[in-house]
């Protein structure tokens, strides 16, 4: 009677190099991303780093970083941080209230869809077109300015100008609050109805529910998104340049001036300024990622 032998040793069905290749196949999909990041993120960042450590003759120097201590540069950083912080807070608060109204506030479904569609478009509407849209609306002879003047309210006579800190902040808000709406809406929708009911059931008022449960749960998302808004405004260049014609001393505008070199040409300083921005952006994005991770941990369970 024939008997079958039971194999005791596992034999791979194909050579190990093919096995390894098969395991690498899924990585092929992300190769374009890595190439893109290498070409347009790591490459330029390395170029900036190297450039910031060279003088005009190409010799190694730390002077570019020492020059960051100039009043003009410090002022640019302070102004950029101020406008970024104000528009992040303002846009964040306004965006949060809008998102609350269309999610928990119980407005009709079509309002939510409309707001999210608008936010998707507006959050990407920046740069020269946005600046001209605001000039056409709120400029000295803008449509809204003229209408307001017709009803007896001359906003420019009352001290407002679009080409000021307030005007620039208002313009930035146009792309800031929609970004907040887009990011915070899913977080608000992640608040479970049962949490509110459980809190009520245990005797809590609506205020106590928000103070002890909803806000702490949402806080990482809110703070994380505000950090993202901060970074978003901090890196904006074209809107401010088109609106103020380069006269406003923001870091991005100052970098442009150093690189173009009309009067201030100093590419080394420009690179050092840009490295400062990279540092602030890195800190911001890291903060955002950490907070978002914490928020997701709570909202997923």
């Amino acid at each position: 009677m024939a008997t079958e032998s039971i194999p005791t040793v596992y034999t791979p069905q194909f050579p190990s190099w093919r096995h390894r290749l098969a395991r690498l196949t899924p990585w092929l999909g992300v190769v374009p991303f890595f190439l893109f990041a290498l070409a347009f993120l790591l490459g330029p960042a390395s170029y900036l780093l190297v450039g910031s450590l060279r003088d005009l003759q190409g010799n190694f120097t730390l002077d570019n970083y020492r020059n960051l201590n100039q009043p003009l540069v410090k002022g640019a950083y302070i102004l950029s941080i101020q406008i970024s912080a104000i528009t992040a807070l303002g846009g964040g608060l306004f965006g949060f209230l809008l998102a609350y109204a269309v999610t928990i506030g119980g407005l009709p479904r079509f309002v939510r869809s409309g707001l999210l569609t608008f936010s998707g478009v507006a959050s990407n509407f920046a740069g020269v077109p946005l600046a001209f849209a605001f000039i056409a609306t709120l400029g000295r002879i803008g449509l809204l300015t003229t209408w307001l003047k017709l009803i007896g309210l001359d906003i420019y006579d009352r001290g407002f100008t679009l080409y000021s800190f307030a005007g620039l902040s208002l313009t930035y808000m146009y792309f800031q609050f929609p970004l907040m709406v887009l990011i915070i809406t899913p977080a608000l929708e992640g608040l479970k109805r049962e949490w509110r009911e459980a809190a009520e059931n245990l005797g809590a008022s609506s205020w106590q529910y928000w103070w002890y449960v909803a806000l702490p749960v949402l806080l990482p998302s809110i703070l994380g998104t505000m950090i993202l808004l901060f970074a978003n405004a901090f890196g904006a260049h074209a809107t401010a340049f088109a609106l103020t014609g380069g006269t406003y001393n923001l870091v991005t505008i100052l970098i442009g001036a150093q690189m173009r070199g009309d009067v201030l040409r100093d590419p080394g300083l420009g690179y050092a300024l840009a490295m400062g921005m990279v540092l602030i952006m890195t800190v911001s994005i890291t903060g955002y990622t950490l907070l978002q991770r914490r928020a997701e941990r709570w909202l997923k369970r």
Partner: peptide
């Protein structure tokens, strides 16, 4: 509901995710 003094246990537990077990129980 918050004045009825009736306790409820939900299908999805509904524990407050930002609080530890002791804080949840003591809420």
């Amino acid at each position: 509901a918050n004045r009825r003094h009736i306790g409820m246990v939900f299908q999805s537990y509904a524990l407050f995710p930002n609080m530890n077990v002791a804080d949840n129980i003591g809420f």
